[in-house]
């Protein structure tokens, strides 16, 4: 375009690039952008703390990057096209196909119109809410307190709600109770056992919800609702604990030598 080699953006030496009379049209060079520390000095209170932290965090980042032995290398993973794309298309078509197939062979059924005057013998939600419905049928274990003249401390409905709160609360707390770098169930038999207990409990609670379909006494069903998950958990724990010995030896040699546990 032009044979003029003088940089025009910040030098401002090119006469033709000048605006009318004013100083050369420039953008502030990079070093005029305030640094974190400058911003930190200009601010106070919470903002200053924020900048202080940002500065540390960035320095930590830089240090980690400098120390890292992380290797970048040419293609070794699957390219997006065609491998990943075709695979995803295949999975998607298969899955949608299955949904349509099942919808065709097991069509959604329909029932009677709503009648506020007639309670049906069996009230059930869709199967995926059975566990929740089971939680509402825990009234036989609602503790009755002697102090209240044998009255129950909370209504049966409220017991159900509390149970829901406990379930969701426990699940939410998991990442804050189980910390550390371990990922495989064999590394932490206890937490794997907790997981299996939870899964089995969701199934037995669902069974409790459809208790009418089981030809066993309610007492037995209630006992099984809590004993089966416990049994599942204990078996999981025992199996994993046994597997651990041999397994961890291999794992330790290969993995923990590279990444010492915290």
């Amino acid at each position: 375009m032009t044979d003029d080699t003088t940089p025009m953006t910040d030098g401002g030496t090119d006469e033709e690039a000048r605006t009318d009379g004013g100083p050369p049209a420039t953008v502030p060079p990079d070093d005029e952008t305030p640094t974190w520390s400058e911003r930190k000095e200009r601010s106070q209170g919470l903002a200053q703390l924020t900048y202080q932290y940002f500065e540390r965090s960035r320095r930590e980042d830089e240090n980690l990057r400098a120390e890292s032995t992380y290797v970048e290398r040419d293609v070794l993973g699957f390219p997006t096209w065609p491998h990943e794309t075709i695979r995803n298309l295949a999975i998607t078509s298969f899955f949608v196909g299955i949904i349509i197939l099942i919808a065709a062979i097991l069509p959604a059924h329909y029932g009677e119109p709503a009648n506020p005057g007639a309670t049906p013998g069996i009230i059930l939600p869709d199967w995926y809410l059975y566990w929740s419905f089971g939680l509402l049928k825990l009234n036989p274990i609602n503790p009755s307190l002697a102090v209240l003249d044998g009255n129950i401390a909370m209504s049966n409905e409220f017991l159900g709600i509390t149970a829901h709160g406990i379930v969701f609360g426990t699940i939410t707390l998991v990442p804050f109770l189980n910390k550390g770098g371990a990922r495989r169930p064999v590394e932490q038999p206890f937490w794997a056992a907790v997981g299996v207990t939870g899964v089995v409990l969701s199934i037995t609670l669902a069974a409790l919800a459809i208790q009418n379909f089981f030809p066993i006494s309610l007492d037995l069903l209630l006992t099984l609702t809590f004993m089966l998950p416990l049994a599942g958990g204990i078996i999981t724990y025992a199996v994993l604990k046994t597997m651990r010995e041999g397994y961890m030896y291999d794992l330790n040699r290969r993995y923990y030598m590279l990444r010492p546990p915290k």
């Binding site: 119109p113 009648n115 409905e157």
Partner: peptide, 17 residues
Amino acid sequence: KQLSFWAAQIGVEMALA
């Protein structure tokens, strides 16, 4: 339908409790 209504009924009762 019937089951819709009574599922919702249980919902209301839960809420009220």
